[in-house]
Design a binder for these strands. Structure first.
Lengths: 244, 244
DNA sequence: ACGTAAGGATCGTTGAACAATTCGACAAGG
DNA sequence: CCTTGTCGAATTGTTCAACGATCCTTACGT
């Protein structure tokens, strides 16, 4: 019992700014994306509200925030659980990436966006040189986030951020971060060069292959892990769909 | 074995429904998109919770749902307001539409998606023949929703649904629904023909012009109305962005 | 005219309470 | 042995009342 909930007490110090529910959501979001809470795990209202020193009502608001970000899913009268992504979910996330990032690389780059992309590429290369593969992963994510800014659309930026947060749920299954991140450092550089050279079609084709490869790496490492960990009774992944 | 029990799985989605907060959100969503609540109007927690006979806490949960759908926006300590879309918001919504719908029409249509699209076109033509321009608008929206299903991505479907709900906020400024909807009935048919003929590039170009036109119609009718109605002190549209 | 202070309205959050629902255990029945 | 019915503990869903915090307005003073 008490799945590391006691550790949450350390995060109590982070309470004290803006809206309590949002701050609680921030804490839980960090905990989820760092893998502290495992996918499928149920988050008890009582124990967590007690550990963080907030009321159940406030915690429920935080849960609702994270449910909308698809990091948690909610089963009526049963509570909230850390989202489990099915292989189909991963495939869908990459479908969306191909649409949004594909549209991005076809645009003529703005100086500001280009600068963001360059920084992300440089950061990834720097982290790779010092064998910090966790930092490489972070920089790679920033790279794609920067790519999307080429669309010049705040809504697409936000959608991409949410999508990447979802993907982080499954990045944890990669036991070897180097094998997963290393191949893409060089490709990021190459994609940047294609953008700067003003060759959008080649950039788009390159990106498609890039995403195909990343998706395959992920699914290959993911499927077996999903079969083994059958702690949750629902073989069909949790559906988060809203009505209407 | 298994006397048709497997078929029941399809009905599982109907179990996880309901919840007072969601039902309240449904009611408010309808009221907002039908224009009963005007953009910029503040929704009082006390009066609405009293009118609907639910507690403030439950109503706040419903508010949170609608805020995430961008139909309401939330100002700390000041309450929730019906979203006001700025001209920049409208432009952004159309940017997203060009990306998502543009990707859709470039795909090879599936029979199911094609059927949905055909039905929407036929419905729009039927409604136009009987001068029911409100119904034409509804059918047109269904048309675009159906277009997006070509992407075969649940997440893009949901994003499109949310986007169209946002757009409905501004459709109300069109005092002449016929002028706004009529031109597109014929174009929907034309776009469908291009899809069936397997000419994705022409379909994409046609869609771009289509969306350009719709956006211009909307912004032209919208800007003046926005200037006049300066009841809210924020000239820059309400920002809904979340931190992180 | 301008800044400031008091007041009122409303939101933010809490804690407690009770109803509703789920789930496991155990007994009864075939 | 398997299925079904029932009970009870545990947890969530929802409500209510209360109080502090924050914002807006108004009135005041300089």
């Amino acid at each position: 019992m008490d799945n590391g909930v006691a550790d949450l007490e350390r995060d109590r110090s982070r309470l004290g700014r803006s809206s309590t529910a949002e701050r609680v959501a921030d804490i839980l979001r960090d905990r989820i994306s760092e893998g502290f809470f495992e996918p499928g795990q149920r988050l008890s209202e009582e124990s967590i509200s007690e550990a963080l020193g907030v009321s159940r009502n406030t915690l429920r608001e935080a849960f609702r925030l994270l449910s909308h970000e698809r990091l948690l899913y909610h089963r009526l009268n049963r509570g909230v659980f850390v989202r489990i992504l099915s292989a189909e979910d991963v495939a869908d996330l990459y479908r969306v990436r191909r649409v949004i990032e594909g549209a991005a690389v076809r645009r003529t780059p703005t100086p500001k966006a280009l600068r963001l992309i360059k920084e992300a590429v440089a950061d990834a290369e720097r982290a790779a040189a010092s064998d910090d593969w966790r930092a490489v992963g972070t920089a790679n994510i920033r790279f794609h986030q920067a790519l999307v800014t080429l669309n010049q659309s705040p809504r697409l930026d936000e959608a991409m951020g949410q999508l990447l947060a979802e993907l982080r749920l499954v990045f944890h299954v990669m036991k070897n971060p180097r094998a997963f991140h290393e191949p893409f450092v060089e490709r990021n550089r190459r994609l940047l060069e294609l953008l700067e050279a003003g060759r959008p079609d080649e950039a788009a084709a390159f990106l498609d292959a890039y995403l195909d490869h990343a998706e395959r790496l992920l699914v290959d490492a993911y499927e077996p892990a999903y079969e083994l960990n059958s702690s949750t009774p629902t073989p069909t992944g949790p559906v988060h769909g809203r009505n209407r």
